[in-house]
């Protein structure tokens, strides 16, 4: 009997990794098709960002720098979308830019989707796209002194002197908030070192879930708040849903995407429990011998 138990627990202990992959694939697929979603709650990492935008005087522009590529888009784009919805509804013009070559494409995808839902949103008045600029931290350094010095035109070749949004913007200090959604380097870290630390401007950002431990040492001293992976975006969406804005919950992506992620977390937990039960059982059974 004991040998039979040992054999069962040894099988669980050495479970084929492909079975774990299969279980994850099945459960994530089912939760995607079944549209499983869970309502989140704002955490103390995103509440300061939300409150800061709420308390900014309407009309003060916000800079969103999108340092990510298609690889990390599923995790980072929902953050940028949630902030875009919020900033637009709160009456803040938004300026987009990127330090990554792929960022230009990411900005276009995001603005095409979000501003299609607001027919009165006008390019040049409510939002503008500076596109990608090569140079990493050198771009940030130059923007500290003069925006016009480094960006003569927007992403579409229009002189920024002809874009009303830039009428009162001379450098980074004229923005009410800087946000960097960052999938790597250059990204949020460079914004902290070369903009946030050097100028007295509120800075916040978002990163992939695995990158959060790297940025938390900067909170709350050097960054106002942090979108910690997809969950950060879903927390921000929860804050938006609970707010004074009449926002359609279907437009918010992170809450929907958190469903499959939550199911994946639960599957991993089940495997962790199974693995540890088998380890403990084998330890006890072998001692009994």
């Amino acid at each position: 009997m004991r040998n039979r138990f040992i054999s069962i627990f040894t099988t669980i202990d050495n479970i084929d990794r492909r079975l774990i992959y299969l279980m994850l694939a099945i459960t994530i697929s089912i939760s995607l098709f079944a549209d499983v979603s869970f309502r989140d709650e704002p955490s103390e990492l995103v509440i300061p960002i939300f409150n800061h935008i709420e308390n900014l005087e309407p009309g003060i522009p916000i800079l969103i720098s999108m340092e990510y590529s298609p690889t990390s888009e599923p995790e980072l784009a929902p953050m940028a979308k949630a902030v875009t919805h919020h900033a637009f509804l709160a009456g803040h013009p938004i300026c987009y830019m990127s330090l990554w070559p792929e960022g230009g494409m990411m900005i276009n995808r995001l603005t095409d989707q979000v501003f299609a839902t607001y027919p009165d949103a006008k390019y040049g008045k409510h939002w503008a796209n500076l596109g990608f600029k090569v140079g990493g931290e050198m771009v940030i350094n130059s923007m500290r002194d003069s925006l016009q010095h480094i960006y003569a035109t927007d992403a579409f070749g229009t002189s920024i002197d002809q874009i009303p949004l830039f009428n009162d913007i001379n450098n980074l200090s004229d923005f009410g908030l800087l946000l960097s959604f960052s999938g790597g380097s250059p990204g949020l870290k460079e914004w902290i070192l070369y903009a946030g630390d050097e100028l007295d401007i509120p800075l916040a950002g978002g990163c992939k879930g695995v990158g959060a431990p790297q940025f938390l040492p900067y909170f709350p001293g050097q960054i106002l708040g942090l979108f910690n992976g997809l969950k950060g975006a879903s927390e921000y969406e929860a804050a938006l849903i609970n707010s004074r804005y009449n926002i359609d919950a279907d437009m918010l992506e992170a809450t929907t995407r958190m469903g499959p992620q939550t199911i994946a977390h639960l599957v991993i937990m089940v495997f962790l429990v199974l693995g540890n039960i088998s380890t403990l059982a084998l330890f006890i059974l072998r001692r009994l011998r």
């Binding site: 774990i20 992959y21 298609p70 690889t71 494409m105 991993i268």
Partner: peptide, 30 residues
């Protein structure tokens, strides 16, 4: 870039979820 490289990148990166699960199952033991 947008039709071949981007989906390939996203696919490869999504493998991380599976690899994380197997690495966690193996490493997080008493």
């Amino acid at each position: 870039f947008s039709s071949v490289l981007s989906p390939l990148h996203a696919t490869l990166f999504s493998l991380l979820a599976f690899y994380m699960a197997s690495a966690a199952f193996r490493s997080f033991r008493i």
